[in-house]
């Protein structure tokens, strides 16, 4: 990150602006929440009252988070590009401020998503969590990585002429190093089993790398 041309007040202004727009035009946010609700209900209904082991539950939870996030954040830059405001934004704000403003907003959206999804998921699957703090830590590191990679990939897909499904295809391989430990740690959190702290560390380190990489690579996209 080139700190010299990072202007925090610009990033903060963009975050606030996106927040305000998000409240006014709820489409993206509603799509994300409804997707997570539909997917969870769908899974729960179709499997009936069967009892799952923690591995399957953990995997289901992260698959729902992944695709709901895809539905919600793929348009981070696309809606502005389509409205013609992205060019204006680029004229008046530093690229790094745009990236981080959007990234923080994406992170906030994903946090809201999990606050909404998690209780529903746990209730519908009748699941008790043995180590709640571990689960929250895993989700925290997980959505940071999703937000960092997701924001950069949302910027990449803006120039694509065919967009259907492109975003999750691009996002999935990049976030695997977060996804896999997240599932394992979530399973441990549900069952109360011992877990490897190293895996949590790996997630944190990969988050940091994704944020740095997004910052460096974003400059080349102009």
């Amino acid at each position: 990150m080139k700190l010299s041309n990072f202007r925090f007040e610009q990033a903060a202004a963009i975050f606030r602006k996106d927040f305000l727009l998000g409240l006014r035009r709820r489409a993206a946010f509603a799509a994300m929440l409804m997707f997570s609700l539909t997917a969870t209900a769908n899974l729960s209904l179709s499997i009936g009252g069967a009892i799952f082991d923690e591995n399957l539950l953990a995997a289901l939870l992260w698959v729902v988070i992944f695709f709901a996030a895809s539905a919600g954040i793929s348009g981070t830059f696309e809606t502005e590009a389509a409205a013609g405001t992205l060019a204006t934004l680029k004229l008046y704000a530093e690229p790094q401020a745009i990236l981080f403003g959007k990234m923080f907003f994406t992170l906030a959206s994903l946090a809201a998503l999990t606050v909404f999804l998690l209780p529903i998921f746990l209730i519908l699957f009748d699941c008790t969590v043995a180590q709640i703090w571990l689960l929250l830590a895993v989700i925290f590191f997980g959505i940071i990585g999703l937000a960092a990679a997701g924001t950069l990939i949302a910027a990449l897909t803006t120039s694509a002429s065919v967009k259907g499904g492109l975003f999750p295809i691009l996002l999935f391989p990049i976030t695997l190093p977060i996804f896999l430990p997240a599932i394992q740690l979530t399973a441990a959190a549900i069952s109360g089993a011992d877990f490897e702290t190293e895996l949590l560390m790996t997630m944190a380190i990969f988050d940091a790398i994704l944020i740095t990489a997004a910052s460096i690579l974003f400059d080349y996209l102009d």
């Binding site: 007040e9 610009q10 202004a13 963009i14 602006k17 305000l20 727009l21 006014r24 035009r25 409205a83 013609g84 405001t85 060019a87 204006t88 934004l89 004229l91 008046y92 704000a93 401020a97």
Partner: peptide
């Protein structure tokens, strides 16, 4: 003509936003 303003913000919100940027 290419540089658009935010349709979902009011005039004052648009102006304040760009003023905050620069």
């Amino acid at each position: 003509p290419e540089l658009k303003i935010y349709d979902d913000l009011t005039a004052a919100e648009n102006l304040n936003f760009f003023v905050k940027l620069r």
